[in-house]
Each structure stands twice: as C-alpha cells, then as structure tokens.
Design a protein around this nucleic acid. Structure first.
Length: 316
DNA sequence: GCACAGGTAGATT
DNA sequence: AATCTACCTGTG
C-alpha cells in the first residue's frame, strides 16, 4: 500500500503500546498477516488492509483511500479488543508472587491479545504446526495470493472457508502447506457441509467451543486454544506449545508434569486471564528474557506454587 | 546430509 | 493410558 505522510491519522481510542509490545502483539505469533516495513506495520484481516505506526508514543493509522476514519477506527477497536482493559487484567495476574511472570510483563508493557476474525484465526493456526512464524506468514500470503479476494489497495484477503472448500488439496500443497493441506482441505469440506458451525462455536461456552473446534480435522488442543484465545477473546484459553511447555518445565520447575497437569497448573496459578499470561511468557521466552530459548536463565523455586523467590542463576 | 520447527492423528505397547 | 511415528517442507 502506497503511503504519504498526509495519510497518517491519529487514533484517539488507541490502546497504549511501546515498540516492543506493539511489535509483539502484531507480529509475535498471534496473527500472521502483519509485516514490518520501515517505520510502520501493514496488516490485513477480514477485508481490512491498514497500516499502523507508533509516533511519539501514540498509535497512528493509514487506511486505503475511500475508507472512512469511522470505519477504520471501528475495525481497529474490534481487532484490538479496545473494550477490554488489558492493563487491569495484567495487574490481576500473579506477578507479585511470580518473578518469572513479572519479568515477562516488564519486558512487554502494553501487550494485548487480538480479537481476530474466527475463520482466519483457525486457518492461520491450522497452518502453524511445526512451522516457524516467518514460514506460517509465507504460507498465508501464498494462499491469499492464489485464492484470496483482492482488496482495493492491491493486497489480498485470506480466502473464506467456502472458497477453500472449492480448492483441490494439490492447489493448497502448492502454497507450501505440506501435510497441513489435507487438514485445511478436510476442514473446509466439513465447514461447507456445516454452514453454521463457526457461528455456533462463537456463541458457545469455552469448553464447548473447544470441543467443537477439536472435531475439525487437524485441530487438536493447542490449535483449538489458539483459536479460542486469538480469535474469540477467550482469555482463559492457555495454548501449550513447545515454547510454553519449555517455560513451564524449566522456569517453573515442572519436570515430569503431564500436559493435562500443566494445563491445571496454568488455570490455577494464572487464573481467568491465563491466556494473557501465556502470551507474556511466550514473548519473553522468544526474546530470551526468561528461560525457554536456550536455557539462559532459570529461577529456582522448589515448589511451583510458592515461587516467591527472586534468586536467579545461570544455567550450565 | 541431517536435525528441527507455535502439532495432530493413528498405531503400538 | 502412555509412548512412538508418519506427515511436508524450508532453514540452519
């Protein structure tokens, strides 16, 4: 999208961000259609194609010509879940007694959980298994280029599930999806036969919604929880991927705990916004701020539930 | 050449 | 119920 300085508009209702938290919120693995270009980010979701930047601590946006500020700001408000007070939710997390979490929160002040369109959140995470974020983004872009609806500014939206259901699996494989192509294809066919499935999920309680998601081919617990968290704002969902698993095991000392037990720990320790805590920990681990990347730093509480000690030591 | 990457499903023990 | 293993492909 071509930009001129006059295109930038302030966004009065914008949440507070710093460079780290804006970058991590947009391009840290919640969404896969944001790109950093010079001093700004460009993102696509639904039929929106919008640029954002942080200028003197405030968010500014630029939308394609012809889109009204009201429409853009309404789309942004929904996407960023502007009605959710993440500062208050963060303050209610157990960081006062959890130095690992405190370290993560301090590194990414202002981090938020996005509320993305359900269908494309599901799609993005169906592409994600054993892939790194840049590759997931490349897949999404390739699929959008091939099958997506063209937008006014020349970019392309992700295809609808209806459109995906019309595509051959081989065509999806051409977008570097690999074995994930079969999951996408089968899920697309299923959703085509059950037109109300996603909207039913949208209005179902979280446990029920998760069970419905896990009925879909290729959707296990982790992808279901990512979809619930990043697509439906279900902040209690706590996706455990390899990063978060490493953090729980190494930083929280939960060696030998089984997946179900790790989920119990997360629910009890982090509470109703456990998913937000997950995102802080995930961001911090990837940034090397806490243990998880290469085992740089660990804390040593003997008991996971009384981890008030702030002593740190280097990993061998 | 080979291990590994924001997993899942099906088989085997 | 716990533990393998195949599944694609790009990257180091």
């Amino acid at each position: 999208m071509k930009l001129q300085s006059a295109d930038w508009q302030s966004w009065p209702g914008a949440p507070g961000f710093c460079d780290a938290s804006l970058s991590e919120t947009l391009d840290g693995g919640q969404a896969f259609r944001w790109n950093h270009a010079g001093d700004h980010f460009h993102g696509i979701w639904g039929a929106h194609s919008i640029c954002l930047r942080l200028k003197n601590g405030a968010i500014e946006y630029a939308a394609p010509s012809g889109v009204s500020p009201q429409a853009t700001e309404a789309a942004l408000a929904k996407y960023f879940a502007a009605d959710t007070d993440f500062a208050a939710l963060t303050d209610a997390l157990p960081w006062r007694s959890d130095p690992i979490l405190k370290r993560a929160i301090d590194a990414f002040p202002g981090l938020r959980i996005l509320r993305q369109p359900l269908g494309e959140t599901l799609f993005g995470f169906l592409c994600s298994s054993t892939k790194q974020i840049p590759q997931i983004k490349a897949i999404c872009e390739a699929v959008a280029d091939d099958l997506g609806h063209p937008l006014a500014d020349g970019s392309r939206a992700l295809p609808s599930w209806t459109r995906l259901a019309e595509a051959e699996e081989s065509r999806l494989r051409a977008a570097k999806l690999g074995y994930r192509a079969r999951y996408i294809h089968q899920t697309a066919r299923f959703l085509a036969e059950h037109p109300d499935y996603l909207s039913t999920i949208e209005s179902a309680p979280t446990d029920e919604a998760r069970a419905l998601l896990m009925e879909l081919p290729g959707v296990g617990r982790k992808i279901a929880d990512c979809t619930l968290l990043f697509g439906l704002g279900r902040l209690e969902a706590f996706p455990i991927d390899t990063w978060v698993q490493r953090i729980l095991i190494r930083a929280y000392g939960l060696e030998g705990w089984k997946p179900e037990q790790l989920l119990d720990f997360a629910r009890i320790h982090f509470g109703p916004a456990a998913g937000l805590a997950q995102q802080y920990l995930f961001a911090a681990a990837r940034a090397g701020v806490i243990a998880g990347s290469n085992g740089i730093t660990i804390l040593q509480p003997k008991s996971p539930l009384s981890s008030t000690g702030s002593t740190q030591k280097k990993c061998p």
